[in-house]
Design a protein around this nucleic acid. Structure first.
Length: 151
DNA sequence: GCCAACGTTGGC
DNA sequence: GCCAACGTTGGC
């Protein structure tokens, strides 16, 4: 079982939006970066992920969710009306993938990026690296446990 | 294959 | 709103 961190702009899709979906579940789609795509494809049912709020007043980790199954082709890549449409993606050989996720917990307060930075044990996290834009990144068990304690 | 130009991300 | 960092595109 692995741990992950997944970014979303709360103005687009927040942890409360996920919580309010039927069953607290939704498909995490729209990933259009190869490295993030590759991580998505490593995911397995039962993996856990942090829900990270980016590009907002207080960027940071807002809560947790569970990965429900393995990645499958992202249908928005073939939907011309979608903002995520990719004309270069061949339906016969899908380029982009999504995973189904389920809301688990919402922290009382978002753990701000600034607070995460103060912990030496978290220094290796990609989300803390300057200029890091990767929207899906692995988290070690040690990092996961520490962040749970901070929450 | 190189690399400049461009578009996007995302913290501040 | 600014701008640094990064990924992608496309001419050569």
């Amino acid at each position: 079982m692995k741990y992950w961190l997944m970014k979303s702009e709360p103005g687009e899709f927040s942890i409360d939006d996920l919580k309010n979906r039927p069953g607290g579940t939704d498909s995490w789609n729209g990933i259009r970066n190869y490295q993030a795509r590759n991580y998505i494809r490593e995911m397995r049912a039962g993996d856990m992920a942090f829900f990270y709020h980016s590009s907002c007043a207080v960027p940071g980790i807002a809560g947790t969710m569970q990965i429900l199954g393995q990645a499958r082709p992202d249908p928005t890549a073939f939907d011309e009306s979608s903002e995520y449409f990719d004309a270069a993606s061949d339906p016969g050989q899908p380029r982009w993938f999504q995973v189904d996720v389920k809301y688990k917990t919402r922290f009382k307060q978002v753990i701000p990026l600034a607070k995460l930075r103060r912990h030496a044990a978290l220094r290796g996290m990609p989300v803390l690296q300057k200029g890091s834009r990767l929207s899906v990144t692995p988290v070690s068990k040690r990092q996961w446990d520490l962040i749970q304690k901070l929450a």
